[in-house]
Design a binder for these strands. Structure first.
Lengths: 145, 145
DNA sequence: TATTGTTATACTCTATAACTATA
DNA sequence: TATAGTTATAGAGTATAACAATA
């Protein structure tokens, strides 16, 4: 039971994080997909293409997702000055607040589960995960930052 | 960039695992939710209540999920001998094969990303994750095994 | 009365294919 | 011709509320 292949451990912790994510999203009146979208935009506006790659969605799926959340005034589509076909999706002020609150709630809940780890251990696990994510970026081109 | 709160690292690795999970599911003609359902049943049949708690789903949502995958002969509902209201969901032989193949593909792909970690490091990270999951189980009662 | 599971309904999420407008 | 994004459509996933049957 304590002997667990790392790949299996990653799958299980991922499902657990999904559950936390779903609970927090619901608390904030969002679907998990909407929360993910908002959190991706915290760093700044993104085009639909990049956003779709980041969220692993077909463009048409993303159109609908953005439509629904734009109707709620959490994001808006800006014209791209360099390409009149394209648009850039940006958080509204309210969207930024919601994104920040949801992100804080997720990490807050996860922190509660990290009681059993000391600082050195956290740093070690965190570093290992950064390595794993770097491998994924190298393989797929999708950045996790 | 290398300094990342562990909670954030967990969220990011979780999204990465979801993408792998989605790709593998598609390769096997399944949705991610169906794959998760099948993999949960590998240990043996489960009642709808337990299954719903494990997958974090309302009972009515689970009814539909099981309906659709039962139509494809990957699971079936068995009568519960001790409670005539209840049923137990079990993998068919074909369902067990699909579950096994999908699980192997997911862990196989993840293993490719773990090249940069030596055995000791893997063991350390795996143990830390087991601790985290144990905390989640203590808080919610949902087992991850 | 409480619990197990289903049904009815209304959304959201997602992909495929066809389309428009711009590059 | 190729690319960015949308529309149309169909199916899957999800929750809430109301229900049936059994405990």
């Amino acid at each position: 039971m304590d002997v667990l292949r790392l790949a299996d451990a990653l799958v299980r912790v991922s499902h657990m994080v999904q559950h936390v994510f779903a609970d927090v999203s619901r608390d904030h009146g969002l679907t998990p997909q909407q929360t993910q979208l908002l959190c991706r935009l915290v760093r700044g506006p993104m085009g639909m293409g990049d956003l779709g790659r980041a969220l692993h969605l077909e463009r048409s799926s993303l159109t609908g997702l953005v439509d629904r959340i734009e109707r709620r005034d959490l994001v808006l589509r800006l014209a791209d000055p360099h390409d009149r076909r394209a648009c850039r999706v940006a958080l509204t002020e309210q969207g930024a607040q919601v994104a920040d609150a949801a992100h804080g709630a997720v990490t807050g809940r996860l922190d509660l589960l990290l009681d059993g780890l000391d600082d050195a251990e956290r740093e070690r696990v965190s570093s290992a995960i950064v390595l794993i994510l770097a491998g994924h970026t190298a393989a797929t081109g999708v950045r996790w930052t």
